[in-house]
Amino acid sequence: MSAGPALVWTIVLTFVFLECAVILGLFLPGDSMLITAGIVMASHASGEKHVWALSLGAMVAAIAGNQVGYAIGHRTGHHLVARKGGKYINVQNLQRVAELLHRHGFVAVLIARWIPWVRTLCPTVAGAARMDHTRFTVASTIGAIVWAPVLLLAGYYAGGFLQRVPWLMPLVIGILVAGLIIGTILGIRHYRQEMSQPAEDFTVETTPAAALHQES
């Protein structure tokens, strides 16, 4: 594997895992990163082989990240830490995710894959709410299959069209990569600002299915 694809692999797997596992991932450019990675792969001679393999790897990273997020939430004992004045990690957003899981459960986990900030918060809230782990895992796996590979392949095949115009491909890749670098730097800065806000406790109610299981 050349240095180019190797670097793409490292960035994609790291970003996907973080975005699905921990709060830091909420501030990383996940969707645009996957599309950009697909376009970059299209510029390599062996890109098709790599992009399909990377799609599988990203899917596994997304599933693993969700499992870590769920485990973190499960260990909190129904109590999550929000941030007063936070833009994303606030009581209102945690409440929205909790209500989404409470009302729709399985379907909510599927939908969460396509909403950036919900995608990161959902596993942790699901774990804290004691959502049935098997149902969560199945929904998480299905969601991973139709999220990361779809965006990577969309970028790859879009890159195939860009290659028809010799000067356009390098320009588009340069703009997208620059955007990702700037977005990541700003995201880390926003994360630090968010975490510097005063902490605020948020209690997650047990999901109906989990409550039924406890009663039985």
Rank of each mutant, 00 (worst) to 15 (best):
G179W: 04
G85K: 07
G73W: 02
L162G: 02
Y156Q: 04
R189L: 02
Q67A: 10
P166G: 10
L101D: 00
V204S: 02
G85N: 06
V177I: 15
Q163R: 13
L168W: 11
A129N: 05
I185S: 00
V125R: 01
V150I: 13
V107D: 08
Y88F: 15
I89N: 02
W117C: 10
P166L: 05
W167M: 14
Q67S: 11
D132K: 11
P116T: 09
A139H: 01
R164P: 08
T76G: 11
T137Q: 13
V150L: 12
W114M: 13
V146S: 11
L101V: 04
G85E: 04
W147F: 15
V109F: 00
L176D: 01
V165Q: 13
L180R: 02
G73M: 04
H104S: 15
Y88V: 10
C122F: 08
R189T: 03
L80W: 00
A98C: 07
T141K: 05
V97M: 04
L80D: 03
P166W: 10
G187F: 05
V107W: 15
Y70W: 10
C122N: 12
L171V: 15
T203M: 13
G69Y: 04
L100P: 02
G77M: 05
Q92H: 14
I142D: 02
V165S: 11
Q67E: 13
E194A: 02
F161H: 12
T137I: 12
P166R: 12
A129S: 14
Y191R: 00
Q197H: 14
I145V: 15
Y70P: 03
W167Y: 15
Q95K: 13
R113H: 15
Q197V: 07
V172T: 08
W147R: 06
P116K: 04
I111R: 09
L168Y: 10
Y88M: 12
G160E: 06
F161C: 06
P198Y: 06
A71C: 11
